[in-house]
Structure formats: structure tokens, C-alpha cells
């Protein structure tokens, strides 16, 4: 039975101007699968509560769990977590949950990861899980993001391990010298950086609603089987 438990914030790391990685120490955490999430609950002094889901950003390490939260303009929970929650303070967490949007190291199909904005979080968790397992399953990550400054995990993505191809595509502003003009992810990008449908890859798509809808439709257009496309919409 998964119930609420207290978790103490032990570290806060800046990722971008609008995203932070938060490291929590829950009372007990036996582990989780890459792609799973947890629910975080905040309680105000008058009893008001707010619950939101956040993906686990990587494998549990020394009992600590890691989230990366992107600030949503006017967002009740994300702005509090990004700007206000002090190190040493507690939130409540419920998890890990969600057994559907997960990558298990036992599956040997090639993996295609399509991330939009903060949708990178559970997908990078899969990359990190692959690393932790020493797996050789070939991965391709296609990451769509507004500007170079918005790239979460930029250092890590710049030096991917063997067998993991990373391509970042910009929608608003490209880095100086880039040949591709900034625009939304299109079929060309998927054709160039994705796996062909004949390889029957497992496809994981995560990000804001509009991105997930568009990317999943492109995969279907390219001939990928609906049953091998898993989506996680952030809202």
C-alpha cells in the first residue's frame, strides 16, 4: 500500500533559470523503475493542501530521491518548490507510482525518447538507469526545447555515453551558428534522429500536452505501432 510519508529536502541544484533539481530524503524508499513518478503534497497552515505529480529523475541513491521541477508561470506548486521550499524542510510524498510509463532493463528493443521541455525528466531517468545497469540497449533521445538556456541536464546531455544518441532541437531560439532555424519538432527531425519503424523501437514521449499529442501523431504517421508508443502528459 502506498501512503503519504515525509521527505526532507536535503539539496537544491540549479538546472536552468526556470528549473531546479531537488534531492529529498524520504523515510523509506526501496527503489523504483525508471519513468515512475511520485505525488508531492504541500499543506498550508490553515489545512489547505495541493498535490502534484513529479517524475523521479534518476535511480534512488543512498535512500535519496531526485526530482527536477520546472517553474510554471503562476503555478501554485511548482513556483513554491522552485523558489521557496527551504533546505531542511519537509513535504509529503506518495510513491513510487505508475507501472506503465517505465523502461525495464530487461527489454532489449531499441529505445526512442522524445522529450518536450520538462518532459526530459523521466526520459533522462531511463538514460541514467541504462547507465546504472551497464545496459547496451541502443537509445536515441530527441529533446525539443525553447532556447539553449532552457536545456535541463545540459552538461550530462553534452557527453552521452556510447549507445546513447542525443539531439536537441530548438523551437524559439537556436544556438549561434546552428543550421536549423528554430521551429517545432517535425517529421524531418524524427526521420533524422529517431529509429525507423522497422526497428520496432519502444517509444516514450513526455512533455506538455500539445507536444505529446503532436509527437505521438508523428510517430504513428511514420508507421510506429500504437502499442509501442507510451506517453506521459504533464498537463
Amino acid at each position: 500500500m502506498t501512503v503519504w510519508q515525509q521527505a526532507r529536502l536535503v539539496e537544491r541544484l540549479r538546472e536552468t533559470d526556470s528549473a531546479v533539481t531537488l534531492v529529498f530524503e524520504p523515510e523509506e524508499w526501496s527503489g523504483h523503475l525508471a519513468g515512475q513518478h511520485a505525488d508531492i503534497r504541500l499543506t498550508a497552515d490553515d489545512g489547505y493542501q495541493a498535490v502534484r505529480s513529479y517524475s523521479l529523475a534518476g535511480p534512488v541513491e543512498e535512500g535519496r530521491v531526485v526530482f527536477t521541477v520546472q517553474r510554471v508561470l503562476g503555478g501554485e506548486v511548482s513556483t513554491y518548490l522552485c523558489d521557496d521550499l527551504p533546505v531542511g524542510a519537509y513535504v509529503e510524498v506518495r510513491g513510487p507510482v505508475g507501472g506503465w510509463f517505465v523502461w525495464r532493463g530487461t527489454d532489449t528493443r531499441p529505445v526512442m525518447l522524445l522529450a518536450g521541455g520538462s518532459g526530459i525528466v523521466p526520459l533522462q531517468a531511463m538514460v541514467r538507469q541504462r547507465r546504472a545497469l551497464g545496459s547496451r540497449v541502443p537509445f536515441r533521445l530527441l529533446y525539443s526545447v525553447r532556447t539553449p538556456e532552457d536545456v535541463i541536464y545540459a552538461d550530462e546531455l553534452a557527453r552521452p555515453e556510447g549507445g546513447v544518441d542525443v539531439a536537441v532541437r530548438y523551437t524559439r531560439e537556436a544556438p549561434p551558428g546552428a543550421r536549423r532555424a528554430p521551429r517545432r519538432l517535425g517529421l524531418v527531425d524524427l526521420n533524422t534522429h529517431g529509429w525507423p519503424a522497422e526497428f520496432e523501437p519502444m517509444c516514450f514521449v513526455c512533455g506538455p500536452n500539445g507536444f505529446v499529442e503532436a509527437a505521438a501523431n508523428m510517430l504513428i504517421t511514420l508507421g510506429h505501432d500504437r502499442h509501442r508508443i507510451k506517453t506521459e502528459r504533464f498537463g
Partner: peptide
């Protein structure tokens, strides 16, 4: 439309 996937009900 603002919706998420069934995954979000897991908790």
C-alpha cells in the same frame, strides 16, 4: 484541452 494520461491516477 488540459488533460494528462491515466498514469497520473497511479498515486
Amino acid at each position: 484541452d488540459h488533460f494528462v494520461d491515466g498514469n497520473a491516477l497511479a498515486g
